[in-house]
Design a protein around this nucleic acid. Structure first.
Lengths: 385, 385
DNA sequence: CGTCCTTGGAGAAACGTATCTTCGACGTTC
DNA sequence: GAACGTCGAAGATACGTTTCTCCAAGGACG
């Protein structure tokens, strides 16, 4: 009596008949060992093609699906990647950068799936048990705050972490970010060239990297060109506060003749505020805001936006993470076939490798003074998306 | 020599020192058995509080994190819920209902996390190996097409499936949907009351439930009130096609004086088309579209929208699914403490339980004539909704 | 003819947890 | 004083894979 029959016997004794077919059932049905089944299905080992295809066929017939849990336990790899987003208050996701986040998450999901991984969304504030209840091969963190305890713990326990947004003070495997300084400088320059004399900024009160770097770049620019800074800051996670801040900015005695809004809804809010004050855009007020939404192509007038290219970011972040997971960088010439693939670790001393990605300024009517063709534009200008 | 020391010895011999602490290490450090550790940490068994807290403390000190994979394997539960969205063509997610999807996914994630589950996003078209590589306790499916093979297989293998959108012809554990018929009828009635004489529809060419039910309701209404149907259908997943279809609809010789657009961008597109043809909204053209976006509160004029209340849907779907997973419904008085919790199965004969949820019409300027006196009372449909 | 290499495959040991079963010790009760 | 219930905890097993190790058979080759 073969061992396969033995095990099958045990199985039949111990449990019901309705259970899902396991690898043992396939082995028994094909008359081979479970080793052979595993090798055949995974394309490993040295097996003649005939055996391989026969086993595959039997497995198919039995509707065999390998247990992901068992595989994960044995392999140490779950094929799961966490996508963590910092939460403001009660809401599970960031509200303000929502379009950005949605696009980024979409691209990240796509990229992960393309490499055989799946994404699981986990707010940073989740109860701890949810976190440790899930086997994660690595994590993407969006805009981690300074000293993020979650990131620190993950990193310490050997889980690769790649952050979207240059991390303040927590250790990550790698990070990706836009070149916010260059972006702000580019916009300020663009507005200046369009004739702006006093450029205002609508910014946020939170301390995330994006807000901080952008604001600092603005202040530095003001300092350099000798303009007095004109800005209003508001809690970006509060959807109502933006309109108020926009209003405040345009109500100032030193009213700017051009404004850059750091957050997605700012364009709409500024436009509404301008209308309220009888300011014409772009004649009296030049407008640019940072947004991924294409509604600004159809506003009256269309508003120039800065796109952070979230899809590119999401793809890059995920690919970096998976590279780290799969040890592309950490090889150190280890024994190839050993049980545990080497955990990724940074080289040791230096800061984590960061990647800066360019942004894209989509110039529309709101930031151009002299538009000789003020006629109503045709339905779809082909050049723009 | 205790068994714990034995096991620890084996462990130390077999592997490096840098590995994560396992339950055995905790047991050894606390001087108890692994049974006791497991019971202490999970709040099970009969242990005095003193032992419990001591074990917990040791576990904490060692930075012990239970292995999710092992727990899943043993328990049969992963705490993971799939969120599947049907894909149109190459894109990983539905484009047209994007705001809907984003909101719904957000609510679903929230609801799942609130009950200790996490969501993993899996396009229906994913390579099969990704699917079977993940241990899912259940799946939410958004708008499954007829005869969806994926849903069928999942259902057959005993994984609970709850669909958002009444399923065409595939077996699901339960489903949730809006009352699309009532919604469309409500809108048509609303437009009629605002003075519309000929109501047009902008609809899609795909066969999903939403499109089908809404269109049928429109046609039935037309039939009942004796209006000739005026509609244009376009591939809703193509973002550019919507503008063309809107244009086509307003260019017809039998141009409607009111339009309902089934998809999110229709409002913008219709507004642009109306402007192109010199039609004033709402004076010459009443406008309503189905959207979750709040940009329509700020368009010129603001556009009346139908909200499907995606957050409510997402929450409901997830709660139904988790109920099914946890066997709220399928108890059948089984032995309480047995190894495998009973898999959920439908009662047997009847159709799966469905829940219809109301929609919400957010009335704005685009669907209200300015002079209420000119309102012509339309042929009232008999109130059999 | 013995040795060595290659092919094809079987055995068995993990992976780390949860839980079922068992077992001693210690009152309690009749 | 013996049977009994309860408390506290240890032992052992199974969850379903993957993979390391090893073995048998059959040429090839000296």
């Amino acid at each position: 009596m073969t061992a396969a029959a033995n095990q099958n016997g045990r199985r039949a004794t111990a449990s019901r008949r309705l259970e899902r077919a396991g690898i043992r059932d396939v082995a028994a049905a094909a008359g081979v060992s479970i080793t052979t089944v595993s090798d055949a299905l995974n394309g490993k080992g040295r097996l003649p093609d005939e055996t391989r295809s026969r086993v595959r066929e039997v497995a198919e017939r039995l509707g065999y699906r390998p247990s992901a849990a068992a595989r994960t336990l044995r392999t140490g790899r779950s094929g799961l990647i966490g996508l963590t987003v910092t939460t403001y208050g009660e809401e599970p996701f960031t509200f303000t950068e929502f379009a950005y986040f949605a696009e980024m998450a979409r691209a990240a999901t796509s990229a992960a799936l393309g490499r055989g991984y799946a994404l699981v969304v986990l707010p940073a504030s989740s109860r701890h048990d949810v976190w440790s209840n899930i086997a994660l091969d690595g994590t993407v963190v969006i805009d981690p705050p300074d000293q993020d305890p979650l990131v620190t713990e993950l990193y310490r326990s050997g889980v690769p972490v790649v952050s979207d947004g240059k991390p303040g003070n927590c250790p990550v495997t790698a990070w990706v970010d836009n070149d916010h300084e260059a972006a702000v400088l580019g916009i300020l320059e663009h507005l200046s060239e369009a004739g702006a004399r006093r450029i205002g900024l609508l910014t946020g009160t939170s301390t995330d990297t994006y807000t901080r770097l952008s604001t600092e770049a603005y202040l530095a620019w003001c300092d350099r060109v000798g303009q007095e800074p004109v800005y209003e800051a508001y809690p970006a996670h509060d959807p109502a506060a933006g309109a108020v801040a926009a209003d405040r900015l345009l109500a100032r005695p030193d009213r700017p003749d051009a404004v850059y809004g750091l957050f997605d809804p700012n364009g709409t809010d500024l436009l509404a505020a301008a209308r309220r004050y009888g300011l014409r855009v772009p004649d009296d007020l030049l407008l640019v805001c940072c947004s991924e939404s294409d509604v600004y192509a159809n506003t009256e007038p269309p508003i120039t936006t800065l796109s952070l290219k979230p899809r590119r970011i999401g793809t890059t972040v995920v690919n970096l993470l998976i590279d780290a997971i799969e040890g592309v960088d950490a090889g150190s010439g280890s024994v190839p076939g050993r049980l545990f693939p080497p955990r990724y670790r940074t080289a040791g001393t230096g800061p984590p490798p960061g990647t800066l990605m360019p942004t894209e300024l989509i110039v529309r009517a709101s930031s151009q003074r002299r538009s000789p063709r003020t006629t109503v534009s045709p339905p779809r200008p082909p050049g723009e998306v």
